[in-house]
């Protein structure tokens, strides 16, 4: 396989994952606006999670909800707006057209066609839930086509690695932006505001149902952090993503019969997570820990790029 193709596959699935993540963030913000008076600071956190707060302020003067939603979903000036990333995903799919099945290509192409139409004009607030649902569904359909039609070979493993690199980064960011409300010291506060914020975090990771199911009615903030970092049953937790990356890179090592630094790094990342539990994380400092994980994940992405010659 061409190095460029491996890179294209990884990025295609990173971008698709990102489109879904942005939709989830907007949905969490939207839900909060429904149940509580619009709190612009919550939207500010959402922009921070999506790593576009500065970019937003370059183009806008204040935190205005419709403008933020528009920036996150449609703005071509925002390289991580849903519209931008779906276009980038499709361009990468075009680049790797010979590596993917017709089903996967058509799913991406249709994702782009649908969202291009859907996001051609600003989304009315009444249409927002349906639009966000469509964004998530279209990305799921690509994943479904990948699972249903692709050989389990290097192509598949590079694609999956893209998904999990992006997801690990996203989960860390969701937690990091709100780390201060998850600290054990605030666990007894339990004010309504905190409840709302916890809910936002869980929704941003599509984890509210799973969390309630596992923890019953008890909402301890530290449990939320524990769940999203360490619970390997949870498909969006950091531990789950790292575990999957280990298996993708282990496959590639076996397939290519070449020892690669990227696998060493992933194994070390996994070991770090296995060594620690949530209490120790709080001792280190939740924010510091999450920052180190984001850095590890970035370094890993970079190493994979080098090991498999994505670029010259």
């Amino acid at each position: 396989m061409l190095g460029k193709t491996a890179g294209g596959l990884t990025w295609m699935f990173r971008y698709l994952e990102r489109s879904e993540n942005i939709a989830r963030l907007v949905e969490a913000g939207f839900r909060m606006g429904l149940t509580h008076s619009d709190d612009a600071s919550e939207w500010e956190s959402i922009l921070a999670t999506a790593a576009v707060r500065d970019a937003y302020l370059e183009h806008n003067e204040a935190y205005d909800v419709p403008a933020i939603v528009d920036f996150l979903l449609r703005d071509p000036a925002n390289p991580t707006s849903v519209l931008s990333v779906v276009e980038a995903a499709r361009n990468n799919a075009r680049l790797v057209r010979t590596a993917i099945t017709r089903e996967v290509w058509e799913a991406v192409n249709e994702c782009w066609i649908t969202l291009h139409d859907l996001l051609a004009r600003p989304v009315r607030s009444a249409d927002l839930p349906e639009t966000l649902g469509t964004i998530r569904q279209k990305s799921s359909l690509v994943r479904g086509a990948l699972h249903g039609t692709m050989l389990r070979n290097d192509i598949f493993n590079f694609s999956r690695a893209g998904t999990f690199l992006e997801r690990a980064d996203n989960t860390c960011r969701i937690l990091d932006v709100k780390y201060y409300i998850l600290l054990p010291s605030v666990s007894f506060v339990g004010s309504t505001i905190d409840n709302v914020q916890w809910e936002t975090i869980l929704r941003s990771a599509s984890a509210q149902r799973a969390f309630r199911w596992l923890y019953g009615g008890e909402t301890r903030p530290s449990a939320i952090a524990d769940f999203l970092i360490f619970d390997r049953r949870m498909p969006r937790s950091l531990a789950f993503c790292v575990e999957k990356l280990c298996s993708n890179l282990t496959y590639l090592e076996a397939e290519y019969d070449q020892k690669m630094p990227s696998l060493e790094m992933t194994l070390a990342f996994r070991e770090k997570l296995q060594r620690l539990d949530i209490d120790e994380v709080f001792k280190i400092g939740l924010h510091e820990f999450l920052q180190s994980c984001i850095a590890d994940n970035n370094a890993l992405a970079h190493q994979i790029e080098q090991d498999y010659r994505f670029t010259e």
Partner: peptide, 29 residues
């Protein structure tokens, strides 16, 4: 892309290729 796919050939761009030991070689994984 269509022809490369149908022939089972790689689809390359100039930036994937270079001269290596007197041959034209493509950068693979």
């Amino acid at each position: 892309a269509f022809l490369a796919d149908q022939m089972g050939a790689e689809l390359v761009e100039g930036r994937d290729l270079r001269v290596v030991d007197g041959r034209i070689a493509m950068r693979t994984t």
